[in-house]
Amino acid sequence: MQTPGKFIVIEGLEGAGKSSAVAILTQAIQTAGHIVVNTREPGGTAMAEAIRDVVKHDWIDEKVTVEAELLLMYAARAQLVQNVILPNLEKGFWVLGDRHDMSSQAYQGGGRQIDQNMIESLRAITLKDFRPDFTLYMDVEPKEGLKRVTGRGELDRIEQEDLSFFERTRERYLLLAQQDHNCIVINTMQDMQAVHTDLELAIQQFLEN
């Protein structure tokens, strides 16, 4: 789907440094003369934010099925795309997303081990042929990523999953990144300055092309 604006997505596990990446890329895109609209998933609209709360809440007396989690993710995504992302792209603005469809492919497909055909069916229904113009996958070893987020405070329902869940998720992320010619992998196990330099180089190359 061709639009006047561009849709750029930052992906990664917990603790990968997505928030810092958002700040760096926002500054670079604005400096290039574009208006930037920031979004996050799940969330980004009133309804999608309500879904985010439901997804992340620790339902102590109720098991959240993997199917329910997947459906909620795509419901929130559909609201965000139709109400925020597409309208802003059509205005010529650049939309910078903290997560998008690759997250569901990795977390629910890899981590939860949901059948890929089920995910593809939901993707076709909710997103059709809509895809990011450019994706930056912030790669971090799961053990290190969880160590970073543990210091931030109380973990949400998904962040409380065991290490093997995040290892499966990372493995799927890396496979998806390899298959996507519009995706760049950023190694966040480097020192912070090296990560920032790699991000700046990646976005500059995209801007120039």
Rank of each mutant, 00 (worst) to 15 (best):
M192N: 13
V55K: 00
I8Y: 03
G110C: 07
E159L: 05
F165C: 05
L201A: 10
A16C: 11
T197D: 13
S104D: 00
Q108Y: 05
A50F: 03
G97V: 08
D139F: 01
R168Y: 08
A21H: 05
I186Q: 04
G43F: 04
E69P: 00
D115F: 06
L136W: 01
Q2K: 12
L146F: 07
V140T: 10
D129N: 15
S104N: 03
F165T: 03
T65A: 00
M102N: 05
Q179V: 06
T188D: 03
I24D: 01
F130M: 12
N117M: 09
L199M: 10
P4G: 12
D133T: 09
D129A: 12
T39R: 07
E171Y: 08
L25P: 01
M73K: 00
A23T: 13
I158R: 01
M118K: 12
D58N: 15
I85F: 04
F7T: 04
T126E: 06
E159Y: 08
G15A: 09
A124E: 15
M47F: 13
E200M: 15
K6N: 12
E120L: 15
A202K: 02
T150N: 10
A202V: 10
E90P: 02
L89Q: 02
M138F: 10
E167R: 12
S104K: 00
D129H: 14
